[in-house]
Design a protein around this nucleic acid. Structure first.
Ligand SMILES: [Mn+2]
Ligand SMILES: [Mn+2]
Ligand SMILES: [Zn+2]
Ligand SMILES: [Zn+2]
Lengths: 138, 138
DNA sequence: TATCTAAATGAGAATTATTCTCTTTTAGGA
DNA sequence: TCCTAAAAGAGAATAATTCTCATTTAGATA
């Protein structure tokens, strides 16, 4: 993803283009694997040593609100972020803190068909994310 | 679930039976809907006003370690707990903080069959939990 | 291009969920 | 009943995140 692409993403959503926002989006795309705010801050500080922690959190909030980034649910109180916006699933490693993306359109279709028939009374489904818990074999 | 049942659960896992542990497990079973530590503390304080916050967190940790309780993943940094130990799924309401259990053995079988054929190379699956995001219609 | 201003950032304090430390109490086996 | 390792209580400490407010800046406008 080029600088120009990142800039366009911000503009499309009506967000002002600032060096901080550019750097944070770029960090998320480059770091991959669902970085924490701290991961992002460490990464950015190399090129952009004066960024304020509060700014990173505020920008992350704005990016989430504007659907440029997603929060990833975890089992502790450290939030993680995801730059992959198309609906996809996650493999959670129980032995490390690795969360790997899992894209499977065949599965998505299977699930969609399943829930079209069996519609849950009283609940309107927007999105389904599988948390696949296990271990990566070494 | 009777007091005696709760006591037995603790004993089976080799945990000492204390009033605090009894109260915390009972709170989780009675509150349902995936309470936070704070929900549990508020509930317990009615009958047990002197319980220490740190004790509640320590007990919750022990219950999780001993598989009497599960953590529930959420999108913010407040942990929630689940007394339903059999594998099941969750409906996340996007408009409130309600997380409802979703039990569906037909679906579980479907998923199990699916992943028996398509085994993910390099990953050993232990458990699959669907996060179904949507809204409860009013 | 220069000006203007609402919005964004920086710095650091505040908040808050959770963990830690240390003393006292207690469950449960001997 | 005694004994002791484990658990609980009190409160301080930690750490992720949020807040406040002074300063800067993006980008619309003239
Ligand atoms: Mn927090
Ligand atoms: Mn925290
Ligand atoms: Zn992802
Ligand atoms: Zn549940």
């Amino acid at each position: 993803m080029s600088s120009e692409d990142i800039k366009n993403k911000l503009t499309e959503r009506g967000l002002k283009v600032t060096p901080q926002r550019m750097a944070i989006l770029e960090a998320i795309y480059n770091l991959k694997n669902h970085p924490t705010a701290e991961n992002i801050i460490d990464y950015i500080k190399k090129m952009h040593p004066n960024i304020a922690t509060g700014t990173v959190y505020k920008v992350l909030g704005a990016l989430v609100d504007n659907r440029l980034v997603k929060k990833v649910k975890t089992e502790n109180d450290i939030m993680r972020y995801d730059g992959v916006m198309k609906s996809h699933h996650h493999l959670y490693c129980m032995e490390s803190d690795v969360i790997k993306d899992y894209v499977d359109e065949e599965l998505d279709e299977l699930l969609q068909n399943y829930f079209e028939k069996k519609n849950l009374p009283g609940f309107k489904i927007e999105d389904i994310v599988l948390q696949v818990k296990g271990t990566f074999n070494k």
